[in-house]
Write a protein that binds this DNA or RNA. Structure first.
Lengths: 343, 343
DNA sequence: GAGTTTTACTAAACCGCTCTAGTGGAATGG
DNA sequence: CCATTCCACTAGAGCGGTTTAGTAAAACTC
């Protein structure tokens, strides 16, 4: 009861294995009648191509790689990651391309995987996430000459095509909204400065603060963890002239910040407005619901999949694509500041 | 500048390609000196094995599959899933086995992927999650004769080895704790009754209620979503003799329930105790922190990886393994009920 | 109707690696 | 000293496909 090969089909259909190959791959060289017969036999025998055999002949691996260098905790906690994964999957499986997922310790290990999988012909391309400042992975992938799409940017991704969001514009819209509500003291619990997008957000906030003549607009960098998000919040809320609005770079930190406010007896939104730069189930299910910048992460994954598949089909053909700028979804965590209302 | 093959190495080292193969695979047949020379040449040429070529010879695919039939939203939201993935990865990558992840619409599609990947020799085995009552996937995998490990059980997984947790014992410990605090009216926002573990938990609660002479112990099944978790909570809290403690089958529903309590003006834990059957970052970062049954999901993933690799190495050798029973982690969301304290 | 093109098909090389069978020479045994 | 065993190594088949070169017959051309 071993699996059938094209040789078995050839024998059973009374033709050569080349004829079978032609028939199964829809190429000329066999008459309609013979083709039909071969296909019937193949289907009767429940034949399926042996991936490795095809790949050996130089065909595609029909798989793309996603290598992530993050602590396990983060993978589990970040709704962003799961949604991206799901979107990516959906886009890939439509063309029956598999996703090879690898979670590694650090960037060095990540690069090693890129090298290995490329030379082993294990995948046809890569998706690069968490773009960093002077990212070391970019030159490696360029050098390997393997198709790859970067999520992040603009800038810093060399010649690799990128799918980017306008973080600057998003931050400006957010600050404009808070300023319009009357907030003058805004603080920012930022992410890791090693990341490109974190730097852009910090710079955008600074610019907006200057333009809007805000009293203060400090950004506190963190490692994106709930712990550092909480302690940054604690520090900010303990200051004598504490901010009336907090911007969190991630949903996890926003929720952690909300908990700190509750623990310190600061009412949200009455005494403090809270905004998250990232939207997810998290910001929706807590009480009060957190005002957040929403983007369709699932769709984003689908876009990346499409770009990568195009890059595999025709290397060099894919250009940078801008994804939709995140839009503000207002929930219960934002309101005009207390002092302003009293005035 | 094409990638080197063992033929290139053979030529360069002045030996036959069989000798190269022996040397590279650490098997007898070459003298230490020759072996050393071959290895040096291979490393100089930066040679790597071509996976497909090896696989064609009947070797392992060095990959296992995880196919999940869940809505994308759930994948993104459930910390459990991400942690399991990370743990699985860690366990697999130690033996440099890749993980093929596929997210599909429904069980029928899932089964189709099992069939395809098996006959394409795409993977060496599968991890089965979300074990259901009369699960249709089990007989298919048994029939395909492919190594597989089930997360769930005991029971309902046929001859496939399973890694299971004692849900019954966990539920009993939880109810005992609530009863000891003085709670008499306990309600249970359950998951989907199609799942084995949900049924077991419901049954365990009923038994405990009888044994402890609790006034009430109703279980409300849901689809695990935050929306149904919230509406179930709303309904339970609206009843004239509402429960003084709520048990949620998942962390997401527990947080959603917490938000509903806040929205209805029910103080937690003063007016209502809340417990989650699943622990994660979520239960930790909200305020008040939610008392939950904790298990090490990352480690669980590692265990599954080990079991599956063993099953691949030696089919039929792997037996059922019981994972650690989840243990209660008490946070701020549980307390003796108000009425009891007054009495 | 002879020459040319097209069609339908086959034989065999090839992809990169593993592994078995075979070979010649050195070491061992009696 | 000859027979045997051992060792280091090579030749080549085989894994399951794809693809190229080749072939015989049928279908066109003028």
């Amino acid at each position: 009861m071993t699996r059938p090969t094209i040789d078995d089909i050839a024998r059973s259909a009374g033709v050569s294995k080349s004829a079978v190959s032609f028939a199964l791959n829809d190429r000329p060289g066999v008459s309609p009648a013979t083709r039909e017969r071969i296909l019937r036999v193949a289907s009767e025998m429940n034949w399926r191509p042996h991936k490795a055999a095809r790949a050996l002949g130089g065909a595609r691996a029909d798989a793309v790689g996603l290598v992530v260098a993050r602590p396990a905790q983060t993978i589990g906690a970040e709704p962003f990651f799961g949604l991206l994964l799901a979107g990516l999957q959906a886009g890939l499986s439509a063309r029956s391309v598999a996703l090879h997922l690898m979670i590694v310790e650090d960037t060095a290990a990540e690069i090693e995987v890129y090298r290995r999988w490329t030379s082993e012909r294990h995948v046809d391309g890569f998706v690069l996430v968490d773009l960093q400042h002077r990212d070391k992975r970019v030159p490696v992938l360029e050098d390997l000459g393997v198709p790859a799409v970067v999520i992040g940017g603009p800038g810093g991704h060399g010649t690799l095509p990128s799918l980017w969001a306008d973080d600057r514009e998003a931050m400006l819209s957010l600050v404009d909204y808070l300023a319009a509500l009357g907030h003058r003291r805004i603080a920012h619990v930022a992410g890791d400065e090693a990341f490109h997008h974190t730097r852009r957000r910090i710079r955008a906030l600074k610019d907006a603060a200057r333009r809007l003549h805000l009293v203060d607009a400090v950004s506190v960098p963190t490692d994106f963890s709930d712990a550092q998000g909480a302690s940054a919040t604690r520090a900010l809320l303990s200051s004598p002239d504490r901010p009336s609005a907090l911007i969190f770079d991630s949903d996890v930190m926003a929720v952690a910040g909300l908990a700190v406010a509750a623990e310190m007896g600061v009412a949200v939104p009455a005494g403090l407005s809270v905004v998250s730069f990232e939207d997810s189930l998290l910001t929706r299910i807590v009480h009060p619901g957190i005002t957040a910048l929403h983007r369709d992460t699932f769709a984003l994954g689908g876009q990346v999949a499409a770009m990568l598949l195009a890059a595999v089909d025709e290397p060099g053909s894919v250009r940078d694509v801008q994804s939709a700028t995140p839009r503000l979804t207002v929930r219960e965590s934002t309101r005009a500041p207390y002092t302003e209302r009293r005035a």
